[in-house]
Computed example of a mutant assay.
Amino acid sequence: MTEDVSDDIRDFARIQPTEAGPELARFAAALRRLQDLTVASDPDPAVWADSAALLEQVCARLERDPAPAGVAPAGRARNLPGNGHPMLPPWQVSESGPDGVTMRGQFSRVHVGGNDAVHGGVIPLFYDWHFGMVVTAAGRPDSRTAYLHVDYRRITPIDVPLQARAWVERIEGRKLFVRAAMTDADGHVLSEANGLMIKLLPHQP
């Protein structure tokens, strides 16, 4: 299952992880809370309007300091849930090695599809991110998802601690086959996934 990829890795400019400070951690936490409240509130229309004005002021402040991809810390901050990216569920890597990556975290109200169950579309998003972690941990060159298949075994709940492990199944040249499973605190399998990650060629973005 091993393969010498040292030359291939030099062909690509990897996005480097970073450590974020408490300021971004606080901001990301507040933004996640805002997302939850947005789908869990029904205030007077004036409250929506006033709140929108406040958010527009925040956007105006952040627009003063643009940063290109690979420079902005959100999405690269390994010490924050979801790497500090608001689109990603608030999970973090707990174990990482060449053959697999274990993550722990939970979903919240913003991820609900109905009846307090996590939306079926959120689960593939999580696994795609998780598979990317496996690519990096395995020392593979930058890759893209060729396919991702999810089997839903049980309802995935919100606001409870969960665990997911993804591992390398096999390697065939540019192809990295990955499998994963998500479990609850009692060890029940909530979903399973398998996917194919293909190494990018030098001309591919």
Rank of each mutant, 00 (worst) to 15 (best):
H203V: 12
H130K: 03
G114N: 15
D4C: 04
S6I: 06
P68D: 11
D184H: 07
L62W: 15
R170F: 07
F12Y: 10
W48N: 13
V93C: 03
F177W: 12
S6L: 09
R10I: 08
E192Q: 15
G139L: 01
V150Y: 02
A185I: 13
V93R: 01
H203M: 09
I198D: 08
E169A: 13
A60H: 04
S143A: 14
D151E: 13
H203G: 10
P73N: 01
Q204L: 05
A77V: 07
S96C: 01
D65N: 06
S143N: 03
A52L: 07
D4L: 04
P205C: 02
G21P: 03
P45N: 05
A60C: 01
D8W: 11
F27G: 00
R61K: 15
L162P: 04
D42R: 15
M197W: 14
P89A: 02
F27I: 13
R14L: 03
A180E: 11
R33S: 07
L148F: 07
E3K: 09
Q163M: 09
R179Q: 15
P98W: 02
P90Y: 04
A30Q: 13
A20K: 01
F107Y: 15
P17W: 03
L125E: 13
R61Q: 15
F126G: 03
E3D: 09
G173I: 07
Y147D: 08
A181G: 05
P86E: 14
F27R: 12
D151R: 15
D159L: 00
N83L: 02
G173L: 10
P98Q: 03
W129D: 13
R144D: 03
H188F: 09
C59S: 08
M133Q: 15
